[in-house]
Design a protein around this nucleic acid. Structure first.
Lengths: 174, 174
DNA sequence: ATGTTATTTCTGAAAAGACTGAAATCTCGG
DNA sequence: CCGAGATTTCAGTCTTTTCAGAAATAACAT
């Protein structure tokens, strides 16, 4: 499959960025490719288009599935698995945030709870304070996130679009 | 400098997490150590406490400064540079978000603008649509972030604490 | 200037991570 | 059950990153 110059540019950039978010270049490139593709692609397609080993594609697809960013589909009369990426950008964003929270915030929250529980006089007063305020902040953030996640989608978008002007409405309501 | 068990646990965890956010284990450990320390530490302190080479500490401290997470201070009668981390967790969070945006969102935004400008008939209609809606979403997100950043700090915290209940206030105001 | 202490830069070794190609496994039609 | 197609696993190679130690530089006191 031949890529258009703009598509290639996007795929390459996404690949570079991938390393900054903790996935390998290939994984990110594949995601970009599937994101722009107008139809689901099979592994062989991807392997040829990006010129990476077939086995590498297999591993990368698994990783993308673990991130919930792509899903498998099938084409009638074709035994091969086809893959397609989440197409809706707002949904894509939601999933990325969710996964990053799961991998970065949740374990830290768990650890901080442990630390807070185990804190004793051996831990200096300052460190103890640091840990407890960090924990409190993350708990709050977490709660905020969960509540926001529960809001109906159109309202969420409305809040987003409102941005800082939300304060005026709140003043009125107060 | 001897670490308490809880502090050690925190430092080690922070180090592991570091790799998930694109900094090396040592960089993250040093940050954790400075975050919990009750006074600014000098490089030698850090090197001994974490048992890493002095040179490694030097490089890592530079990286932490590039992230705006630590700053240099001085102690009278001591020629050595001392380092202290941002202590306030809300401020720490703000800085981390800002830096990640700068490294992850801004370049992508720039690329998408280029891609949108260069899009022509060679780029498929579908890919073109994908790129333009991605761009639109990121622009909106960016604007939202800038506006939120501009809000006075107490209001921001109030919004955070409110969480999903913000919707009730908005209904009242409408 | 000279020696002392602090810091940074450089180089190469070791560890970690990404990738390939071959072999093994799985899947399904006949 | 057999065989062709599809996918996954694995062992080894290549690349990148991390880090220690040595050498160079800088800052300062005497």
């Amino acid at each position: 499959m031949e890529l258009s110059p703009v598509t290639r540019k996007f795929v390459l950039h996404w690949g570079e960025m991938g390393t900054r978010w903790g996935v390998s270049r290939t994984v990110a490139q594949i995601h970009a490719l599937l994101y722009l593709a107008e139809r689901p692609l099979h592994a062989e397609d991807i392997s040829e288009t990006l010129e990476v080993a077939r086995s590498n594609v297999s591993t990368s697809l698994k990783e993308l599935q673990a991130w919930n960013l792509i899903k498998v589909t099938h084409v009638i009369g074709d035994r091969r698995d086809h893959y397609e990426a989440i197409q809706d950008i707002t949904n894509l964003f939601r999933v990325i945030v969710e996964e990053r929270k799961r991998r970065e915030i949740d374990p830290t929250l768990a650890l901080l709870r442990e630390c807070a529980a185990e804190s004793d006089s051996k831990t200096g007063a300052h460190a103890r304070e640091r840990i407890s305020s960090t924990l409190a902040f993350l708990e709050m953030l977490n709660k905020w996130y969960e509540e926001m996640k529960g809001l109906p989608y159109p309202l969420l978008m409305a809040l987003l679009r409102m941005g800082g002007r939300v304060q005026r409405f709140l003043k009125k309501a107060a």
